[in-house]
Simulated scan of single mutants.
Amino acid sequence: MDILLFTGNANRSLAQGIATELGVRLGDAVVSTFSDGEIRVKINESVRGRDVFVIQSTNYPQDKNLMELMIMADALKRASASTITAVIPYFGYARQDRTSEPRVPITAKLVANLIETSGFDRVMTMNLHAGQIQGFFDIPVDNLYSSPVIVKYFIENKMMGDDYVVVSPDAGGAVRARVYAKLLETSLAIVDKRRSAPNAAEAMHVVGDVKDKHVIIVDDMIDTAGTLTQAAQACLSNGAKSVCATATHGVLSGPALERITNSVLDKVIVTDTVELGQEKTNSKVEKLSVAGIFAKAISRIQNKESISSLFEMGRG
């Protein structure tokens, strides 16, 4: 396969997993910092005329990871790469996709402009927090979904059927939860939530029947885990037998891990779009890999094949 994969420092383990799935090696590049903190990039092999994929999530530290991504694009473009694709498993700043109050930026649009200007020809990402961000770019954007991996996990563990109910932690995630409910053949419920401030939410009541059911809460990301743990408590208070949760992006910032540890949640399943260090894992947090999904998409793009079949599982 005539492609080259490079990665920054955001998620080297996922990048290696994708390379292994494709049967290729990671490209030779130095991505480090000078003594004053400026980012240093050096590509140590020829990329002339090659199709290059740069794998880099833009989670914390967002600004450093974003700068690594853009500087790598500039280096590759100047080295005469044929095409350069940004593979961004977790797209940072995606929650700043509109002006929700006066005099605030649309940072997701600014980030899209920066990525495009830096020299990328295409963007591949997963479970964008706001789907309309695809329209912020004037280059192709492939928004993949983690649902095939997550649904497979639940089916293999027999967590499906009439004894289970899929719950959305807020009204905005109802479409996503409905997809999982259909695939797992469960009923559906929604937690009515009122957000009082950023990263702060108050779960009010459950719309739907969770009594005597095993609950699976489905979300796109877990940040501080405030919404998640309150939704889990609301389900248990309404008679649920047990509560577990899943999300594509395990951001787990601030008090998230402590909240999950002290919550009624039995288990939280996330994927490896964000690299989780030892300080962000415990017996309740389980990680699945989406390397195979990205590898399939990269392979099909390289072979000029359709990737629409990768969206068959819906908006999970």
Rank of each mutant, 00 (worst) to 15 (best):
E185G: 06
T107N: 10
I190P: 09
S82C: 13
K193L: 01
R95A: 04
G135Y: 08
F120S: 09
L144R: 04
Y180I: 02
L110P: 05
V104A: 10
E156V: 04
A177E: 06
R178T: 05
A94G: 00
A197E: 08
A94F: 01
A174L: 09
V166R: 00
Q134L: 11
R194K: 06
I150C: 11
Y164L: 13
L128E: 04
D138H: 14
N113Q: 13
A181T: 01
A201Y: 07
F154V: 12
A112S: 15
I133E: 04
D121R: 10
A197W: 04
F91D: 03
V87P: 11
P148C: 07
V111F: 13
P148D: 01
K158V: 14
D170N: 01
N157L: 01
I133T: 09
I133F: 03
S147R: 11
V207F: 12
R122L: 09
E202P: 00
V215N: 09
V166S: 05
S196R: 14
F120G: 12
P102Y: 04
D142Y: 01
I216G: 04
E185W: 03
V179G: 07
T117I: 04
V149R: 15
A130H: 06
R122W: 05
H205W: 02
V191C: 12
V191P: 10
D162E: 14
N113G: 11
D163K: 11
A86P: 10
D170E: 03
L128I: 10
L144N: 08
H129Y: 05
V111I: 15
L114G: 15
A203M: 09
I216F: 00
F91G: 07
V151A: 13
H129G: 06
N157A: 06
R195Q: 09
V111Q: 13
R178Q: 09
M159F: 10
V191R: 13
Q132K: 07
V215Q: 05
R103A: 05
E116M: 11
D170G: 02
I84P: 07
D212C: 12
G161F: 11
V179I: 09
I88P: 03
V166H: 03
M126V: 08
P140Y: 08
S196E: 13
M126Q: 09
A94H: 01
P105I: 02
I115L: 06
S168R: 08
K211S: 14
A171C: 08
A130T: 05
K193D: 05
S147K: 09
K152F: 01
V165L: 12
R195D: 03
R103I: 01
R122I: 08
T83K: 15
T125D: 13
K152S: 14
N113C: 06
I216Q: 00
G161C: 08
V166A: 03
G172D: 05
D138M: 03
S196V: 12
D121G: 15
K193P: 06
F154A: 11
D170R: 02
D170P: 00
G172H: 06
V206G: 02
V123C: 07
A181S: 15
K109F: 02
L144K: 10
G92E: 13
V215C: 12
F137P: 09
A108C: 12
V175R: 14
T85P: 04
D121N: 15
